[in-house]
């Protein structure tokens, strides 16, 4: 059992506040991804959980015990670093065995565990080599094997795939997911890559400017962004936003179309729709086509609606010309609304 609980954790570097009062609970065996742009505090949070950084306030609990005063080695964690940190002066075998030797395990047990994890990560033929003789992908595998060999309750991963080329990243992503599901550890995984986050996570914690904006299942984060930031950060292309003016009896006017919407004391709110939730229709939003990008399965159309940039992912059979005005109708159940001041989601009724 290794539930991780972060309570009211903040981190300040001089005048700069990297983390504002973070509360987050990661369930036992859950795969939690911390997602955010660089500088949002996700790595700092991970390092605080690891014990490589100490919080300015708050508590960190792992497996029912408070650990924020303990050094990393007493926290029952293993970590995969962004630059792998595979020791250059040790062979692959000794790298994987490093943590086990520190625990003073019997030689037989060390051999057994190293061989098993090496096999799991498909690097059993590299055990006698040094880090300098490995490719980036192989080093990555060694770093993961070193963490898995510890059989830890918690594995922390700091952008482990960011230094790999695109193809290798795809391959490692699928492999990591399988291996970690098998190992039954609690995982916290830091990334700035939303696709990685969506594909790996049980839950995604989206971070912005030192705060967790939303921590939910990937599909929830995608479908129901808790804040405008989440909608614009997740999804490629991201969510479309248009200003909506208050009309009669709880309706809102977007461009020249009226939609049922939430109640708000403001005269203007933000209307939001994902590009793939649009379809050509006689009654939709008037959109002037600017750029047409055929992507194979569908076509990405960049238009202008009411003077705002607006993207739609449409069927590739559709015949479109630049400068043409089309009407795009949003699926009613996919429309989202955001408060103009707090930028939080507004519940439609």
């Amino acid at each position: 059992m290794a539930e991780i609980s972060i309570r009211n954790v903040a981190k300040r570097f001089g005048d700069f506040t990297a983390l504002h009062s973070i509360d987050l609970t990661v369930a036992d065996q859950e795969f939690m991804v911390l997602l955010g742009a660089s500088g949002c505090g996700k790595t700092t949070l991970l390092r605080i959980i690891a014990g490589l950084e100490s919080p300015s306030q708050g508590e960190v609990w792992i497996g029912g015990g408070r650990v924020d005063h303990l050094p990393p080695r007493q926290r029952g964690i293993a970590m995969v670093f962004q630059n792998y940190a595979v020791f250059p002066h040790l062979t692959v075998f000794e790298n994987i065995a490093f943590g086990l030797r520190m625990q003073k395990l019997a030689e037989g047990e060390i051999q057994h565990r190293v061989n098993r994890t090496a096999e799991l990560m498909h690097i059993e033929q590299l055990l006698k080599r040094y880090s300098g003789q490995l490719s980036g992908g192989q080093r990555q595998r060694v770093a993961v094997a070193r963490a898995l060999a510890m059989e830890p309750d918690v594995i922390l991963m700091d952008e482990p795939l960011s230094n790999l080329d695109a193809l290798l990243r795809l391959e490692m992503r699928a492999e990591l997911k399988g291996v970690l599901a098998e190992s039954k550890t609690t995982t916290i995984y830091v990334t700035h890559d939303q696709v990685e986050a969506m594909s790996l996570a049980d839950r995604i914690a989206v971070m912005n400017k030192g705060r967790i904006v939303q921590a939910e299942k990937p599909i929830e984060v995608y479908r129901n962004p808790a804040a405008r930031f989440v909608g614009s950060f997740i999804g490629n292309p991201p969510m479309n936003f248009l200003p909506a003016m208050k009309a009669e009896n709880g309706s809102w006017r977007v461009a020249d179309v009226v939609f049922k919407g939430p109640t708000s004391e403001h005269d203007e709110v933000a209307f939001a729709i994902r590009p793939e939730d649009l379809a050509p229709s006689g009654t939709g939003l008037p959109a002037e086509v600017r750029v047409i990008e055929p992507l194979g399965p569908h076509v990405l159309v960049t238009c202008e609606v009411d003077g705002h940039l607006f993207r739609a992912v449409l069927d590739s059979d559709l015949e479109l010309k630049r400068g043409q005005t089309i009407r795009l109708a949003p699926s009613p159940d996919r429309i989202r609304w955001f408060d103009p001041e707090t930028e939080q989601s507004l519940q439609a009724h």
Binding site: L52, N83, F87
Partner: peptide, 18 residues
């Protein structure tokens, strides 16, 4: 010596002396 090596060693259970 890159800092990560010390951090990795720390996480994997090495005392300051080790």
């Amino acid at each position: 010596i890159p800092k990560e090596y010390h951090e990795a060693a720390e996480v994997f259970g090495a005392s300051p002396w080790k």
